[in-house]
């Protein structure tokens, strides 16, 4: 073992300190909110809570799970994540496979690719987009949250590049064995691309869980809001018009701040649960799009 120089040791100390501080800055705000959500409201209002719950209490959680608006929006989000992810993944695979072919075996490929890529480069803008969805009569239905974003072009490009990096012999041998394009896609390409597909799947689920703006403008009635949109109205907008008198009385007891904190935690929890799986894949996922011939 070689001896570190004095300068090197100072550098390493400073380096570890900086990095640990950065890591704390990413973690402590969440701990603070978690501690707030688990504390009693007098303790929170007195400013006694920092990183550990004071006067431990689950009252806020009990309140939010008994709140029909919260529970309802939770259900809608589950539906959205399941349905939306399924539609996204199906379309991603079904587009990436044909677009990964070369121009000789699929002559219109370049035209199709440009039709899809152009949608990343240019947008009609918020108002025409909203009017389009209004005209399709999807407003206020779950499909308004799924169909407008059903084709995730970036993910298609990611998977397309992954498919292209696979050896061409796979496809050829599959054709010789008598399989068509559909069989080759489902039985050969999809199974061996599982790492890439799993990455995209996790990102897609997180995306659906997190998105809130579309719910906010495409759902006319707040009872159709997915969880994130509902959270936006209660945490950020502080819209009390939806509350009933008994709720307001209860709020006096459990405090607005602890309830908000509890809802933030519940909104973030599923992300924290899938996070370890995500982390296993996403580094690979980021690099995977860059493999090109």
């Amino acid at each position: 073992m070689h001896v570190l120089s004095f300068g090197r040791r100072i550098f390493l100390t400073v380096n570890y300190t900086v990095l640990v501080l950065l890591a704390c800055s990413c973690l402590l705000p969440f701990i603070n909110v978690l501690a707030t959500s688990l504390s009693s409201s007098p303790a929170v209002n007195a400013g006694e809570v920092s990183l550990w719950p004071v006067d431990f209490s689950l009252a806020s959680y009990r309140y939010i799970v008994s709140n029909p608006a919260f529970v309802g929006s939770f259900g809608i989000t589950l539906e959205r994540v399941a349905l939306g992810t399924a539609v996204n993944m199906l379309l991603t695979i079904m587009l990436a496979y044909p677009l990964s072919k070369d121009n000789r075996s699929f002559r219109l490929r370049t035209v199709y690719v440009w039709v899809f890529v152009f949608t990343i480069l240019f947008h009609g803008g918020l108002i025409p987009w909203y009017m389009t969805i209004k005209m399709t009569h999807l407003l206020d239905t779950i499909w308004a949250l799924i169909l407008p974003g059903a084709v995730p072009v970036f993910n298609v490009i990611l998977l397309l590049n992954f498919f292209r990096s696979l050896p061409k012999e796979l496809e050829e041998s599959s054709f010789i064995d008598g399989a068509g394009h559909w069989t080759t896609m489902w039985k050969i390409y999809v199974p061996i691309s599982m790492p890439a597909i799993a990455t995209i799947l996790l990102f897609t689920m997180v995306g659906h869980w997190n998105s809130w703006f579309d719910g906010l403008i495409l759902m006319n009635s707040p009872k159709h809001y997915p969880l994130s949109s509902y959270l936006q109205t209660v945490i950020i907008q502080m819209d009390y018009s939806q509350l009933k008198q008994e709720d307001i009385d209860l709020l006096a007891v459990i405090s607005n701040r602890t309830t908000k904190a509890a809802q933030i935690i519940v909104g973030a929890l599923p992300i924290l649960i899938v996070y370890p799986f995500l982390q296993r894949y996403f580094v690979k996922g980021i690099v995977l799009g860059s493999v090109k011939e």
Binding site: M94, G124, P128, W129, T136, L147
Partner: peptide, 15 residues
């Protein structure tokens, strides 16, 4: 996918 993109990306461009 093409149909969905035509409706939800190209229609707004016309809009």
């Amino acid at each position: 996918g093409l149909v969905l993109v035509l409706i939800f990306s190209y229609m707004p461009m016309f809009g």
